[in-house]
């Protein structure tokens, strides 16, 4: 039971990394400047690397002989447990950066907390990933500030991205019985703790960027339970194409 709770928990982390990494990979060759093309694919690469470690651990916990690729590529849409935020389309550069910023501001305190987990393998993955995530957050924070306090157009685009994505942010702190089990065993942090830190980061960066937190607090979720947005099917069609078209082959 506990192993399966931990499996589910690690799977959620893995899926967040994979799906966001997949989205960022779409930018390759199309970035607004070469330096940002490199930065976005670099973040993508870090996230795919994290996904590999996390899926390996999930596969081990599951104990059914699946490997990281089978977990990443060969599930149905409703078996992916990533938050809705990460599957949202790239949109313009402002949308991509804000999506990444909201995610990084969540991932950093989460990894910092998971470094203290008694689950040694999870703590080790968190310790490795925290350094990358710290850099990602620094990078996206700087861009949020640059866009917010840049030109009128960049300010408007950044604010539009915030207004659009805000409704997906609450789901980052989703908790269910699975999390409560692991929290009771002090294996993972409570989300209230992460949310406080997230809010502090978001508030201070948006303030410096002269951007506003939306007043409408209506939020929704579903990703953690496998209910995704319409975008997810298309994303998976690309992701899974080779594995579905050429089953059981090694590449």
């Amino acid at each position: 039971m506990q192993e399966s709770a931990l499996f589910e928990y690690v799977l959620r982390l893995s899926d967040d990394s994979l799906i966001l990494g997949q989205r960022l990979g779409e930018w390759c060759g199309h970035g607004p400047i070469l330096e940002e093309d490199i930065a976005l694919t670099n973040i993508s690469l870090d996230l795919i690397g994290q996904a590999i470690s996390l899926y390996d651990f999930a596969a081990e916990l599951e104990g059914k002989g699946r490997n990281h690729d089978q977990l990443a590529y060969l599930r149905y849409e409703n078996e992916y447990k990533n938050v809705l935020l990460v599957e949202q389309p790239n949109g313009d550069f402002a949308m991509t950066i804000l999506r990444q910023f909201f995610f990084d501001a969540f991932r950093l305190p989460l990894y910092e907390a998971l470094m203290q987990s008694p689950v040694a393998q999870l703590a080790a993955i968190a310790a490795k990933s925290v350094k990358e995530t710290r850099y990602h957050l620094k990078h996206t924070s700087e861009w949020v500030i640059r866009m917010g306090d840049g030109t009128e157009e960049s300010h408007q685009r950044a604010q539009a991205a915030i207004d659009h994505l805000w409704r997906f942010t609450n789901e980052l702190f989703y908790e269910d019985a699975n999390d409560h089990t692991l929290q009771a065993e002090q294996k993972v942090p409570t989300m209230a703790h992460i949310q406080t830190q997230w809010m502090a980061t978001v508030t201070s960066v948006l303030q410096e960027a002269t951007l506003e937190i939306p007043k409408n607090n209506w939020k929704f979720d579903g990703g953690r339970e496998g209910r995704h947005s319409e975008h997810m099917g298309y994303l998976l069609s690309d992701l899974q194409y080779m594995q579905r078209a050429y089953p059981n082959m090694e590449w």
Binding site: E26, C28, G29, I52
Partner: peptide, 28 residues
């Protein structure tokens, strides 16, 4: 870059990302 989203497994995806990134670096 056209094949990054469709790379057949995670290792190949990571390798291709790193490769295309190198090319951007060469451009720089």
């Amino acid at each position: 870059g056209n094949w990054i989203t469709r790379a057949p497994n995670l290792r190949r995806k990571a390798v291709l990302l790193a490769k295309v990134q190198d090319e951007a670096g060469h451009g720089l």
